[in-house]
Design a protein around this nucleic acid. Structure first.
Lengths: 231, 231
DNA sequence: TACAAATGTTAGCCTACTCTAACAAAATAA
DNA sequence: TTATTTTGTTAGAGTAGGCTAACATTTGTA
């Protein structure tokens, strides 16, 4: 059983490498900065995690997750993003409020809880920030995130989040029947005023470029994250 | 901001005094036993909590919650019971599984979360064990818990829990339209076979004494817990 | 290539929470 | 009312996680 702190180090390493950094390993200072602790502190923990075979680390070298370390880190990320989705979809938190609370909730230990929550939320694929939620098996899609105005004409996509939080915008989103994980088809763009015609739930709407810029979407062409690593 | 440990000590003191113990104060050994720590450990923490003015404690004396300590303890209990209700009602945990997970969830810090959760659950009054959930203001009803077969004829009550978990029983409960926080009226009892006629959702059913024994109810005559204390 | 800057490590110390062992006070029973 | 048991306290030590200050190694550049 890992402590909250240990889980946070694994998660940091995941974020700094495969997930956002797109590289294999991270340095001690980098990890320390990400967790808001001093390098000396991180150094101690890295030695401890190496001892537990959760990371690969050599003195004066960079650190990377082992297979078992990565598995645990992905589980924490899964919990984090499921909780964010819960807070957003069920408890009406705004997307900028969910992270802080999910930072706490992600450490609750109960595999039954995670699976039940996943089911309750109807197995969501993206969280309110548009980040992919790993499955129970630890698989995680890397979405090609873009905004609705960047989507090509004639293609379908899925709404995964918003970039604005004003109530007027949110009410508009609601009015056209849009919400997270909803499918959108881009039908056409008016050359004259750049209005975008979309189809949601079988209904057609015209939206402005300003509106479309604030809708985060993902195209269907996604690839599994795990294939990016070898070991 | 209190640590998990400090919160647990306050909660223990609440349980051992006003709530279940129905007395004003608890001894060091008693508190230590309740928290599965050694008396020496509890002693240190009691001194620390006294320092923070959360408990009244004198060397070789008993301990009790101050007004502010009690307020914090009740807040923790509120969170615990709301989470239990969530797990039971929304995630389909059984009533004997909820406690362990709620022990972790009760320490999540976010007043917004608690209030939103309360609203999401439609302001429940009792948790799946039939224990009262304190309100946001810290008020807590002390119910007169009994089983359905103990309820007088002609009177109404509210289901607050069950005493059995077999699927056949639970399916039966479901079939008559019963669930937690549902109102039940006891219409009559057959002298011959002791069958109890009840009304739920405007529909009438006859249930056996065996069934009724396993339904926890609360009569309407409840009194606020806080009136039990002076300071 | 040599040296300065950046990066990483070690040693020593701190706080929170836990323990055991020894001791002190209070409560109870003879 | 004294002796014994129960209850509570203190001292000293350990683990986890954090810090600063000093030192070591690598990296990058003049």
């Amino acid at each position: 059983m890992l402590s909250f702190t240990e889980e946070n180090y694994l998660k940091a390493l995941l974020h700094l490498t495969i997930e956002t950094g797109d590289k294999e390993e991270a340095g001690t200072n980098e990890i320390a900065a990400h967790l808001n602790v001093k390098p000396a502190t991180a150094n101690d923990m890295l030695k401890k995690l190496k001892e537990k075979k959760l990371i690969d680390y050599e003195k004066y070298g960079k650190s990377s997750l082992t297979t078992s370390g990565r598995k645990l880190a992905i589980e924490v990320v899964r919990k984090h993003r499921l909780w964010e989705t819960f807070l957003y979809e069920k408890l009406e938190f705004t997307w900028d409020e969910v992270h802080e609370v999910a930072e706490q909730l992600e450490h609750i230990q109960s595999s039954k809880l995670v699976d039940k929550l996943d089911k309750f939320l109807n197995y969501p694929v993206f969280d309110p920030h548009g980040d992919a939620i790993p499955t129970a098996k630890g698989e995680m899609k890397v979405p090609l995130k873009k905004t609705l105005n960047e989507q090509e004409i004639g293609r379908s996509c899925m709404m995964i989040g918003v970039k604005e939080n004003s109530s007027s915008f949110l009410q508009y989103v609601d009015k056209v029947g849009l919400s997270i994980n909803k499918k959108i088809k881009v039908l056409s763009k008016q050359p004259y005023d750049e209005l975008i015609e979309i189809e949601v739930n079988g209904k057609r709407f015209s939206v402005s470029p300003k509106f479309a810029e604030n809708i985060l979407i993902v195209s269907e062409d996604v690839e599994p994250m795990n294939t990016k690593r070898k070991n």
